[in-house]
């Protein structure tokens, strides 16, 4: 089966890896990639890393990307715009842990990008 790919974008590579581990305990088949930290492995995000992560899990059903803090959103948007990526949803203002988990579960049961986007609204966070 084709799945919607999930991308975890975090300022911290450890946070992203830890979250992937948490998801993999339950969800084995859905392609999930991480883009944690800067290119030098420091705290922050990298447009290039995000681009690579999205490309690595891209399928016909597209990709949903989730981020932790505001500047990660900016880099995610720029990764999509600059590389003219299509079929990518950036989950706006969704808590990373709960949102990624729900997205992976929904993807594993064959849901579309739009359906996943709707499902993760349940865990909407405060507006920052």
């Amino acid at each position: 089966m084709e799945y919607v790919g999930v991308v975890i974008i975090s300022h911290s590579s450890k946070l992203a890896e830890g979250l992937l581990e948490l998801i993999r305990q339950v969800i084995k088949d859905v392609p999930v990639a991480t883009a944690g930290g800067t290119e030098d492995g420091e705290i922050g995000t990298s447009m290039e890393k995000i681009h690579e992560a999205i490309s690595s899990v891209m399928s016909e059903k597209g990709v949903i990307a989730l981020y932790d803090l505001g500047s990660a959103r900016m880099n995610a948007e720029m990764a999509v715009e600059f590389n003219q990526l299509e079929n990518v949803t950036i989950a706006n203002g969704i808590p990373l842990v709960e949102g990624s988990y729900v997205a992976a579960v929904e993807s594993s049961i064959g849901k579309s990008r739009e359906e996943i986007e709707e499902a993760i609204q349940k865990v909407k966070q405060m507006e920052i």
Partner: peptide
């Protein structure tokens, strides 16, 4: 700046 700065200043000053 977009490639090298990891915080918000990378995307903002880059833009």
């Amino acid at each position: 700046l977009m490639a090298k700065v990891g915080g918000a200043s990378g995307p903002l000053y880059g833009t």
